[in-house]
Amino acid sequence: MNRFSYARPSDVADAVREGRPGDVRYLAGGTNLVDLMKENVERPARIVDINRLPLHDIDDLPDGGLRLGALATNADTAWDKRVEERYPLLASAILAGASPQLRNAATNGGNLNQRTRCYYFYDTATPCNKREPGSGCGAIGGVNRIHAILGASAACIATHPSDMCVALAALDATVRVTGAQGERAIPIADYHRLPGAEPQWDNTLAPGELVTAIDLPNERFTEHYTYLKLRDRLSYAFALVSVAVAMRVEEGRITQARIALGGVAHKPWRVPNAESVLHGETPSQNAFLAAAHAITEGAHGHGENDFKVGLVRKAIVRALAQAAAGTPQSQTDKRVA
């Protein structure tokens, strides 16, 4: 861990001002940032501790949506009555992640901005284009069991590890940010990015920009939804693959289906065109399979993660069945529903 200076502003304007000079990192729960600093992966010259900013609340929006403060913890968000009732998919996805202790410390803004769990990214003795642009990608041709099968590039095959973000993608959330240029609202689909030739950038946040909140639209998927996560042990492991489904079924037909995938790409993976394959269909294995193939078109592995291609398709089919039947995956009963 390097030496850094430290500031703890108490309003957003100050934080953004502090955040402007280069090599600054905002410190929220610290569950990811501090680990990375200990491993010398992150070497900020300056830490701006944002925990005193007034961004801890969860508020109703006038249009019936909900605003999740960037500093509301993952636990407070998942257990918030309004989230539980109106956005059970989000609650479920958050509870599928990490451990209770971590969720108590982790914040929504931090979760959005957490970095990949690629082994090489974490180990400064190895090559990694994301950590050190131009050094090469250790995972290609290396240990890549947990890596991407969609949207990867020749420079990087890392995945975004978040569970929460997969649900946010299915829910069409909006990320609110504030920077030197003022405020912006970024649709979640445009927030994270694919690695391309510049894998050092996980998302489209400009340097120094601060996430202040995540807005959830007033669209409720309370009956037909699920978050299905498959991992290397039954709890407390990152997703090998995960599927968030938000669906509407009217008179026995699917009128809307949103499918977001975790653990397979550099961002939560959604293909709206593939989702429309299901529109107007009655729920059936065949229809689900068609959608699974459509959304994973072009998926391919890099050796150790080849199995993910078949696994994610099966998981999509199962998740769609769970959502259609109104029997979402429990995050406490480890039996797959």
Binding site: R117, Y119, G138, I146, R233, L234, S235, A237
Partner: peptide, 24 residues
């Protein structure tokens, strides 16, 4: 897990080296 090219164990932390959790 060994990266045979680098000759190095790669999942050298308790997030990625999995021992059974309570749920298991």
């Amino acid at each position: 897990m060994m990266d045979t090219k680098l000759g190095r164990f790669m999942n050298h932390n308790l997030a990625e080296y999995h021992v059974p959790a309570n749920a298991d």
